[in-house]
Design a protein around this nucleic acid. Structure first.
Ligand SMILES: [Zn+2]
Length: 282
DNA sequence: CGCCTTTGACCAGCGC
DNA sequence: GCGCTGGTCAAAGGCG
């Protein structure tokens, strides 16, 4: 039954509005003000590529908690306002950046058939992305789905590397990007890309009474976002600007950067509907 | 035994 | 035209 329903992902494969990386440039706006009041903050919402050229990178953010183009500001982060003077940021954390910058290791590489990394004709189609800012020390936030890490890269301007995750479902093309804020090591930015075409793996056992709207098919990012962007299994042609004042209320004022259970503390507001605390193991 | 994490290398797009 | 960054894949290893 729920084997593999047509995901219907790329509504318009040839529209891909956003052009991949827009970080190199960007004027850097850094709008995101993750004050210390919220635990989770919806960072951005990237453009939809439906079929109309009019639909541009939707950038609706009305609240102070929502920001746009996190990619941009992240690449540059130079507003100066967020600049933390005493950000420890131990660079030692960097396992391996470089790549093609400084010298080049003369040795290494057993040399093998280098015929991987995608084909040439394969165009990179990106899907709407949603970034969430969550205050937590663990970058592996449970969202109810199983992810497999497929890469990690050091981000410029950020002492912390970025991790790339992909849904373990073969039919699912949802990807997740997790990285830590360069300014606030306690803040983890999780960027979701795509929609899950399957139900959550783990199931809320013992806490399923609260799942009033348990969207078996719309559980991709967060129930709140789903209401605004994914009222239906598939992205509608017209999205309603999340100007709703309900967004900010997503996170309870749990300003407690301490440690232990950071995001779980308030996941009942964001992920609580998708995943239950303590359902997964890893 | 199976699954997932880790690491290096490669590619594509974009900027300059 | 070259260089850079981001993004992805693949193989091996580790852990449960
Ligand atoms: Zn999935």
């Amino acid at each position: 039954m729920d084997r593999d329903p047509p995901p219907n992902f790329s509504t318009a494969d040839s529209s891909t509005n956003w052009t991949s990386s827009s970080l190199a440039s960007a004027s850097v706006d850094a709008d995101y003000l993750l004050s210390g009041d919220s635990e989770t903050t919806i960072l951005t919402e990237f453009g939809w590529n439906f079929d109309s050229d009019e639909v541009q990178p939707s950038r609706f953010l009305d609240s102070d908690q929502i920001a746009t183009d996190y990619n941009a500001d992240f690449a540059g982060t130079s507003t100066g306002s967020l600049q933390s003077p005493d950000v420890p940021v131990p660079l030692a954390s960097n396992p391996s950046l470089s790549s093609s910058s400084s010298g080049e290791p003369p040795e290494k590489q057993p040399e093998i058939p280098r015929n991987k990394v995608k084909k040439k004709g394969q165009k990179r189609i990106r899907q709407p992305r949603f970034a969430f800012m969550t205050k937590s020390e663990v970058d592996h936030l449970e969202d109810g789905y199983r992810w497999r890490k497929y890469g990690q890269k050091a981000v410029k301007n950020s002492p912390f590397p970025r991790s790339y995750y992909r849904c373990t479902n073969s039919k699912c093309t949802v990807k997740k990007r997790v990285e830590r804020s360069s300014e606030d090591p306690t803040v983890v930015i999780t960027t979701y890309e795509g929609q899950h075409c399957h139900h959550t793996v783990g199931f809320p056992r013992g806490g399923g009474l609260n799942m009033a709207h348990e969207p078996a098919f719309g559980t991709q990012f967060s129930p709140h976002m789903a209401q605004f962007f994914y009222p239906e299994p598939h992205p509608p042609p017209t999205i309603t600007p999340p100007n709703a004042p309900n967004l900010p209320s997503v996170a309870p004022s749990q300003a407690e950067p301490t440690n232990s259970s950071p995001q779980v503390a308030s996941d009942e507001g964001l992920l609580g509907d998708v995943v239950a605390p303590g359902m997964r193991r890893r």
